[in-house]
Nucleic acid binder design. Structure first.
Lengths: 339, 339
DNA sequence: CTGTTAGCGCCTTCAC
DNA sequence: GTGAAGGCGCTAACAG
């Protein structure tokens, strides 16, 4: 591959001049600029980004640290959609990214700082880490810019984008209340995830606001798994015939609840109303189509990227962006006011 | 961040010795090795991969060139699943990757060669490019190793992984035949995709083998779109009441056909049998669950990665890997032998 | 065993 | 306007 040196030799100019010409510096005469450009094109010259990054100490590359790019999460295309948003926006801004898939154990082998330094990353987007993962702490303290998705943390160089989890979850539950439901189960994900904590709080708060009693036994942990949710749901349903509605912290878990209902011959929504969370693709196609709290992961990816690049380039920008969720009404909730 | 220099200064050894010690060369005494290692740990030294790549002329990084990481393709998690396979296997092999999203027009701005050279990529995996995309040609001619997914091309440094498209498509059609169907529509994707051509040929071949006549008017182009397929399907169904089955080159398009049937009050499978292709997540959840030709994109990703790394490291390996598809029987095909 | 020298490809002073 | 020199962090001969 052609290097600056080659272009220099071919044109007779020095490497320095060639470099400046190609980078559009103004202190090179138009004439030589043209000459150099022409030869560069002819030789198919393309700057070596590694060499450039080495000396410039910035790489126009960001790292995307994820822990959930696994097959198990495939139903939930949240990850994929944010990825698309990030990818698109990054291309727009002329950056590139490397995908750094990590696990809690891997994080012990290599520190966050090392990870960034190794590749001279200009910034990092983190998604799907567990709350206790070491990288989270390190990221906040580090001085390479970082934006988190759905994990609140702020700092000089750290921001996050999230959705209005709390409000939208509360709304969903109040909606159930307005539809006449008084005994509402909450199927939560894993308590390790920040979003789960928020949704749990929202559940409690919403109940309080409408004057319903919070009962520990109506909260179950579905671990974001269809199977587990189904499994946990059945006994609850059996033991509490008064239950008429379920609020799930994810659509995947709602699918599990749907199965549980089917197994117990409970009709949805006639006997049991269900609200999910995420608006995954499937939710529109199952029978009955799922009423759910829709998120906009693509937009979140775009926003995260924009924030990160602003951080990198020291532009003014908010350190917190909230993308509004939206309750999507379909057919899995029935009104029981008349009963 | 600590560099070799820092470690050298701290230990009193030369940079070279430190480098060799840390890279486990045998010509360094155990004692100094230990001493150096200790200081390196203390300082949190981590090699700068860029600098190393620059001199080693290899980066332990591969490029993943895709053109279809777009929101439109979100229903089809083929892309995402292969990505997972690639990511997992790459981590296994201790490589990293950058995602290079490209479009036909972008390919005019920067050649494939430049793309590889810029980042000193050791190899490339290509997925989802159009047959006429310039990068395809370039990739085959280039000498950086490359493996393609679902695009047949071979060479010294080029291989591909695919599934047994032809056989499995033929099987699906023969299955319809065995179930008594004699008028079978074929909904194809875009003719730009290699897989579409293969599936089209398979359709023709299968008909021939079972002694059915190939009729041009029973082939429609759905462009991999649900909408388009539905739209195209309706008139065909209206004009040809003898049609009893449809073979779709993708599940997404099968969904469109399903809608078309619903709109025309045709029951599936009683009045119309449908076979899809891909086994996308949705296919199991729609009503009725879709009989489909299942692919295994995760395994394809793993295989592609393994092949690429073998190519890079000059290990012996096949240049063509075929992952077998599997016909997944669900409820969208009915037998009409009795009629 | 260890250190010196050279260079990967690029950018940035600082002279001329 | 242009060029020479130096250095980013690292590895690879080559001496000793």
């Amino acid at each position: 591959m052609a290097t600056l040196k080659d272009v220099a030799k071919e044109t007779g100019f020095s490497i320095t001049t060639v470099s400046r010409a190609l980078n559009g510096y103004s202190d090179v005469s138009e004439e030589t600029k043209l000459k150099i450009q022409k030869v560069a094109d002819k030789l198919g010259y393309s700057p070596n980004i590694l060499a450039r990054s080495l000396v410039m100490k910035q790489s126009r590359t960001i790292g995307l640290i994820v822990s959930d790019i696994k097959r198990e999460n495939i139903k939930d295309n949240f990850m994929y959609e944010t990825l698309c948003g990030i990818s698109d926006q990054l291309a727009e801004l002329d950056y590139e990214f490397v995908l750094l898939s990590t696990s809690t154990s891997k994080q012990r082998n290599k520190t966050y700082k090392q990870l960034c330094a190794e590749r001279q990353l200009d910034g990092v987007i983190i998604q799907g880490l567990k709350l206790e993962d070491p990288y989270l702490q390190e990221a906040v303290q580090s001085n390479t810019p970082c934006v988190l998705i759905d994990i609140p943390a702020e700092g000089e160089n750290v921001g996050y984008v999230t959705s209005d989890q709390f409000e939208s979850a509360k709304n969903a539950i109040k909606y159930l209340y307005r539809m006449g439901h008084r005994n509402i189960v909450f199927v939560n994900g894993s308590e390790n995830a920040h979003v789960s904590k928020v949704r749990h709080r929202a559940y409690q708060e919403a109940l309080k606001e409408v004057g319903l009693e919070y009962k520990e036994e109506l909260v179950i942990v579905g671990d974001f798994s269809e199977e587990k949710s189904k499994h946990e749901m059945i006994p609850i349903l059996l033991n509490n015939p008064s239950i008429t509605a379920v609020f799930c912290a994810s659509d995947v878990m709602a699918l599990g609840v749907l199965q549980a209902a089917r197994e117990l011959q409970l009709k949805v929504p006639e006997h049991l109303s269900i609200i999910g969370f995420d608006n995954i693709l499937l939710s529109r196609y199952v029978t009955p189509p799922l009423t759910t709290v829709g998120q906009f992961p693509y937009q979140m990816g775009v926003a995260a990227t924009q924030m990160l690049v602003d951080l990198i380039e020291k532009k003014e920008s908010a350190h917190v962006v909230e993308i509004k969720n939206k309750l999507i009404l379909r057919d899995s909730v029935a009104s029981i006011v008349s009963k």
